[in-house]
Computed example of a mutant assay.
Amino acid sequence: MTIRNICVYGAGALGGAFAATIANTIGDQVKVTVIARGAQLAAIKAQGLTIEKAGVETVTARVDATDDPFELPPQDLVITGLKGHQLADAAKGIAALLHEKTRVINILNGIPWWYFHGDEHSRFAERQLPELDPDGQLWSLVGPQRVIGCVAYQGAEVIEPGTTRLSGNGRFFLGEPSGDMSADLNDISALLTSAGLNILPTARIRDEIWLKLTNNAAFNPISALTRSRMDAIMANPHTAAQVRNVMSETKNVGEAFGATFAKSLDELVDRPGGYDPVRTSMLQDCLAGKQLEIMPLTGMVATLGKLAGVPTPTCETILALTLQLDQANRDGQG
């Protein structure tokens, strides 16, 4: 495929880092535009997007920015940096950016709205998930056939409007829902690799989704509920036991839907070198009074567990507590 125009829809921490990296390295080959809002949009317009990373030179890139996707021409590639609970509301805006051959990369934590499209490893192929796409607009307006799934391993936090701080060396798994190592997947992977991103194409993107979800389903809500970083959670034997329970339940549900895990439960829980003092994205949102990304994570483990007949008692308890926390937080009681 020919890629000349790229739009990053949702230029927050990770979306902004993608946009800045691409614009800084191959901006002479592609035009990068971002969709942002509020203080982030104002900062990008005024001074560009900045990436900070320890031991690496700080990078600032100028990109076109707007909060109105309807004013842009069709794009060859759309990369969404929105969280799972924000994506459905953006369906019409994303659809406005599409031409016949546009591909859409969804950088998402947890179970994505397109999960069962092209799924040959369960009996639920093409099943839609109203918990993630309530009115079916993502399915009908964007279309699961356009999607390339993305599982991102990259710590990122907006430390001030327009500036993202990265931690660790990022890895980004890309895959077609069908498992096909398509020409589009190869072309997009090659382009993003040339931009300096560590892209890992895979024929089994769902395995990567479930592997990362074992961590996200546990650490995100527990960190928000306890206001704790990951190292502190694991230093406490009581909260560490709940992390293990959630990871076990998540792994069991994933395996029921055909996922293969490269690591045992012990290997998932016990990291060599221990856990870093990381503030999860849900903890960041909780402290900022933002809506929490609950349903794609622990919520879908519980939902899909019921669908598969796999018990998820710890996930269901944590889900109930986190939903109440989210409501109290948005009501100003957090």
Score class of each variant (00 low, 15 high):
residue 17 A to M: 14
residue 53 K to G: 05
residue 27 G to M: 05
residue 182 S to E: 13
residue 222 I to G: 08
residue 288 A to P: 00
residue 16 G to H: 02
residue 198 N to P: 01
residue 43 A to P: 09
residue 182 S to A: 13
residue 4 R to L: 06
residue 307 L to G: 09
residue 27 G to W: 00
residue 148 I to P: 05
residue 136 G to E: 02
residue 69 P to M: 10
residue 226 T to P: 06
residue 222 I to Q: 06
residue 253 V to Q: 02
residue 126 E to Q: 14
residue 168 G to S: 12
residue 44 I to N: 03
residue 270 D to L: 08
residue 116 F to L: 06
residue 189 S to H: 08
residue 324 Q to W: 15
residue 113 W to Y: 04
residue 100 E to R: 15
residue 225 L to P: 06
residue 109 N to P: 09
residue 159 I to D: 00
residue 232 A to H: 10
residue 74 P to G: 01
residue 45 K to E: 13
residue 303 T to H: 14
residue 200 L to V: 14
residue 188 I to K: 11
residue 54 A to W: 11
residue 130 P to W: 03
residue 75 Q to C: 10
residue 118 G to A: 15
residue 61 A to C: 07
residue 306 K to D: 13
residue 46 A to Y: 00
residue 99 H to Y: 04
residue 111 I to E: 03
residue 8 V to I: 09
residue 102 T to C: 04
residue 111 I to K: 04
residue 141 L to A: 11
residue 83 K to P: 05
residue 24 N to P: 03
residue 265 L to I: 10
residue 269 V to Q: 04
residue 64 D to E: 11
residue 180 D to A: 15
residue 19 A to R: 05
residue 105 I to R: 03
residue 141 L to P: 01
residue 294 I to M: 05
residue 198 N to S: 03
residue 209 I to H: 07
residue 147 V to C: 12
residue 135 D to F: 07
residue 257 F to V: 11
residue 104 V to T: 04
residue 14 L to F: 13
residue 119 D to A: 09
residue 296 P to K: 07
residue 185 L to V: 11
residue 25 T to D: 06
residue 165 R to W: 15
residue 22 I to H: 01
residue 222 I to H: 05
residue 333 Q to S: 08
residue 278 V to G: 00
residue 109 N to M: 11
residue 242 Q to T: 15
residue 6 I to M: 02
residue 21 T to D: 11
residue 212 K to T: 05
residue 175 G to Y: 05
residue 331 D to F: 09
residue 286 C to P: 01
residue 324 Q to I: 14
residue 178 S to T: 15
residue 104 V to Q: 01
residue 270 D to N: 12
residue 102 T to D: 07
residue 54 A to R: 12
residue 10 G to C: 02
residue 321 L to E: 08
residue 313 P to F: 08
residue 74 P to M: 00
residue 45 K to S: 09
residue 168 G to C: 10
residue 113 W to I: 07
residue 273 G to M: 01
residue 73 P to F: 04
residue 216 N to Q: 11
residue 239 T to G: 07
residue 167 S to W: 10
residue 295 M to E: 15
residue 201 P to R: 09
residue 98 L to P: 01
residue 31 K to Q: 14
residue 261 F to Y: 10
residue 209 I to K: 08
residue 222 I to D: 08
residue 64 D to K: 07
residue 162 G to L: 02
residue 238 H to G: 09
residue 45 K to G: 08
residue 68 D to K: 00
residue 237 P to K: 09
residue 99 H to T: 03
residue 332 G to V: 06
residue 326 D to H: 10
residue 222 I to W: 00
residue 266 D to F: 00
residue 224 A to I: 09
residue 273 G to T: 01
residue 121 H to S: 15
residue 210 W to E: 04
